[in-house]
Each structure stands twice: as C-alpha cells, then as structure tokens.
Design a protein around this nucleic acid. Sequence first.
DNA 1: TTGTAGGCGTTATCAT
DNA 2: ATGATAACGCCTACAA
Lengths: 329, 329
Amino acid sequence: MVSIKDVANKAGVAISTVSKVLNDYPNVSEATKEKVMKAVEELNFVPNSVAAALSSKKVGRIALLVNLNVSAQAIDEIDMRYISGALQKAMDYRFDVITLFFFMFRDKTVDELIRYLQSQSISGIIIYGLSKEDLVIHELIDSKMFKCVAIDAPLMNDTTSCVSIDHIRAQYDVAYKTIKENTGNKVLYIAGKRNGYVTDDRIAAMKMLAEKENLVLDVKYGEFSEKEARELTFKYGKKANIIVCASDLMAIGSMKALQEMDIFRPVCGFDGTTLMGYVGQQMNTVRQDFEALSAKAVEELNNLFNGQKGRLVEMPYSLVQINYTDIIV
Amino acid sequence: MVSIKDVANKAGVAISTVSKVLNDYPNVSEATKEKVMKAVEELNFVPNSVAAALSSKKVGRIALLVNLNVSAQAIDEIDMRYISGALQKAMDYRFDVITLFFFMFRDKTVDELIRYLQSQSISGIIIYGLSKEDLVIHELIDSKMFKCVAIDAPLMNDTTSCVSIDHIRAQYDVAYKTIKENTGNKVLYIAGKRNGYVTDDRIAAMKMLAEKENLVLDVKYGEFSEKEARELTFKYGKKANIIVCASDLMAIGSMKALQEMDIFRPVCGFDGTTLMGYVGQQMNTVRQDFEALSAKAVEELNNLFNGQKGRLVEMPYSLVQINYTDIIV
DNA sequence: TTGTAGGCGTTATCAT
DNA sequence: ATGATAACGCCTACAA
C-alpha cells in the first residue's frame, strides 16, 4: 500500500508537507504543491481514511441510523432511497459512512450506544424514521456528543438539525385537491402513529382544512399500518365520502378494503412510493424526494461540522398521481 | 473516551497485557485476565475499532457491494434484506461494515476501486447482484486482493466463495408445479438478463423440464424488467398456455398485461417478494430467504478469513404463493 | 514556507 | 506470564 511517506519521498518533501497539501492548508507554495500533486498522481496515492480518522479529531465519519421496518416493503423503498442518497452525497464530502439499524440497539442503553459510536470514531449521525417512543435515540441527541440531523423529526438544538418537507402544508394540499376533485364533506382521516412527529402536524392540517371547507372530520390512528388502515376502512369507510391517509401504504390498504367491500371512495395517500402504481386505482399522493432529503441531511451535517447551529431545513414536495405504467421499467 | 491505557492503569498491568486479554491470546494467567476484565467492566471500555483496524493486519472490515437498481422497488426489498441480514450477522463477528453501491464506481477502474477499498482497510467483500457485464467487479475478484463472497454468482477460487440457492432445481420445481396445476403444454419462459449467471441455469432447467414433460418451450429474455415482461406478454402471451417468469417483478408485469388483454394464463414468478401480494392474482413463486443468504455470506467470509478455500454454499428455498393478507402488517 | 516530532488507540514483537 | 516498545498511516503544533 502506498503511503504518505512514499509520496513525500517521491516529491522530495516532508510527510507533513504532503499532508498540508492534501488538506488544503495555507502557507504552501505553488511549487511544492505541484510537486506533491504530481507524486500523488504518479503513485496513485489514496490516503488511508482509517489512519486519518484515528489521527485527527477531525470530523469525517458519519453513521446512518435507520429505523427499518422489516415487514413493510414500501418502507424498504423509502429507506433504500435514504441510504442511497446519503451515500452519494457523502462521497462528495469524502465522509466515511456506516449504516446502522435501530433494531441493532434494541436493548442497549444510550451509554452503550454512545460508546459504540465513539469506538467507530463517529462524529455525525443522520436519523431516519424517528418516533417519539425511541427514547434512547432522543437521549443520544440530547447528549450533544455528536452532530445530528433528523429527518422528519423537528428536533433542533445547537448540534441538531432537522430536514423535512412542510408536512402541514403538504397534507393540507393533497387533501384539499382530493376533496375538490370529488363530492361530499364527510372525510375519514387515517392518521399515522399516535404521538408521531409528523402525525400531529398532519392532523392539525386536516383540522384546519375541515374548518375552512366545512368538513365533518373523523380521525383514526392507522399506525402507518396497511392492515390497520384496511380494518379501519372496513369499519368506517362506508359512512365517509372521502378517505385521506397519512401514508401510501395505508392508502393502499384502505383502497383494497374498499374494493373488497365493493364500494368506491376516493382515497389519497402520502409519500409517492412506486407501490402506488400497483393498486390499479389512481390516487393523489404527496411525492417526497427521499434521496434529495437524505443528501441534504449530509450537507447539513457538514454545515454543523463547520460550526453552524442546528436549524430546520425545509425541502420541497409535489402532488402527484402514480400510474402503473409510470413506475415500471 | 476511555482507552486501553485507562484500563491498564486501573488494572495495574501493561497496555499490552490488556490487549492480550481482549484478543484471547494464550499465556495470560486467569488472575490477570480477571483483573483486566473487571477494569473493563468498571470503565465501560469499548475498544476503538478504528485504531484496531489501523494497527493490526487483522481482518475485520468488510464491504457490501450492492448493485442497486434504483428504479425497481421490488429490488429495494431484496437489497434491503441483504443489507439487513449482513449487518446483523456482522455484529456477531464484530466486523465493521461499509455499504457501497455499484453506481458509485461506475467510471472507475479496478485499480481505483482496489485503492479505495484499501484506503478503507477493507479485507473482505460481499457482492450482491453481480452480472457478467460488471467487468470491474470481476477483475476485483480475480485480483485476489480481498476475500470475496458472491451471492448468486458461481465464481469460486481460493479467495472467493459463492452463496446461492440451487437455481436449476428451484426453477424446475416452480415451473413443474405450475404446469401440473394447469393444462396445456405451450409455455412461454420469460428469462432474466441475457448472459446473467442465474439466467443460463434457469433456462437449462426449463429445457430439461420441456424435454421431460413434452412441452413446447418459447424462451424470451425479459432482462428482469417488468416493462419488458409486460411487452413480451402482449406479444407472445396469447399463444402460450402457461407463462413462467424468472422474477416476481416480471411475473407481475406479465400478469398485468394479461389482465389488460383480458385473457387468463397461469403465471409463476421467482423470489418470493411481498410485492406479489399486491397483484390480486395468486401465483406460484420461489421463496428465497435473502436475509439468511446474506448472513451466510458473512459467515463464509469469516471462514475465508480463517484460511478456508472458496467454495459453493447452497441455501434452501421453498415454493409459495403470496397473498395480500399475508404480507400486510 | 518547510520540516521535526509527538500523538491518535491498538496490535505485535521482543525482551524480561 | 508480563511488560517495553516499535509499528500502523496520518495530523498538527511547533520549531527552524
């Protein structure tokens, strides 16, 4: 393996000089800079990132904390896009990244989690799919030992940012559109997880809409479960005119139930997953660009590393309908 | 951060002694072993894996090389299970793992890839979704610089193992079952990728079956594309009695086409993804346990690390039908 | 502007 | 059986 030493020899300078060139230090003459870069080229030198991580207290290693829901595969799509988006962006910043799943730390304490992350020289964390019940992760954030970026969870402090779309407006928009395209004022809202971060926001949006448009709003918690949405629809679907769901998965569950009941109700979802293309029925949904969200999270982590304070970063969304012929490839 | 030095101080021994205890070296007395472990407990010491990786030429860092197909989300399910299975097992062996996608190295040469992996102190690699066209990856394997385990690609040498189900038998079985459950002897086989590893095996299986059962076999390449399968079905579906597909995704594409053509043909798939539950039509398929496959790959990597030669590891499969109510949760 | 030297946390080789 | 001590490859004051 060619090391910085080899480069230094070849360039006829000291190791530290090479290091300075490589890390964009000031006070290096153009001449030596060129000599060094030439040697780097010729030797195909790639710095050993493990050694770098050990040596410097510099940032550069980040962990993706993914709340994998192993049973629902529409979730797989979202998580996969999160991971893919983050890894791509991380390459730009030359961050090393390790991927971790919540379930790996199921019975661990914060301290154990922290020590594990330290043992990996992790300095930044991106958290996907956090819900209020994940106490350990919250303690982790509160510890302020690491720079954090949470996706879709409005947890900000000096070391923590949040990247998210405007769930209130998005939920409002998609429901409004669906209502205007159809008739009736009785809407069943199948919300997400009780006490979920986005859940409360979205319910608030629905209440606003109900007030403005004079709707009779029935709110039930579907726990982001397709099955639950299905059952709620069997129970309450008939007496509603329109069904608004807090996720595509639940929208599909609801729609399938309606089909089995042999009645029609317009249903709208949330997320814009390709799975929506398989249902046969066109539904409005909110399209989020999960890869872009995740890439932005990496960027934001970099900002935090550079001394910026935590903040909310809002990302765009769009209203779409997803057809089978759109998603296949 | 508590280091090995702190442990040594607390236990009243030398750093090297602590290291020996921690790494199960021989020639350490029970007494000191206990002293050290007690100090470890009390200090909640977790060894810094980055430092360990730098210091020792020991194995322990592995890379997951995933051929992410960003457009097909049934693929997401499979890849997610691969990743999840590997990460779980890796924890048991205390392997550090980094996840990489093929597209990250799209225009890179083998040498660049090798240097990157070296810069990460990677000693083992698991490869998912390899096809014959991925030249760089093949060169990587041939270089024998790393221990490799390929999933579903029969590439073995002294440093490379393969973990896979028996694709020939599986394809034979699922097709046989479907044929026996229905009538007619004209079967359209929508194969996978031209020159794909599993593709050729499965085509061989179909030919065997055709001979034994006196079938008229029509083989077309669907490239594992749902869209392609859909179009092939529009073209050739009518004159077949039965359609056998090399993936669930293609089976779904085919089935959807049949539905639009308003004709019925039994279709069977391959993989056992949950997406099959959304089609409404029951289809036979081969269920693979992707997490188990991936976990086995990690195990096999460990075997290779321990001096074992590369080999083929065969995993079980089963024939199933997937219902909507089975998959939702 | 450049180079020297100490350190990051471990592992591993040698003495003892 | 135990303990110094030199790597591992890089970063970073600090000295020159």
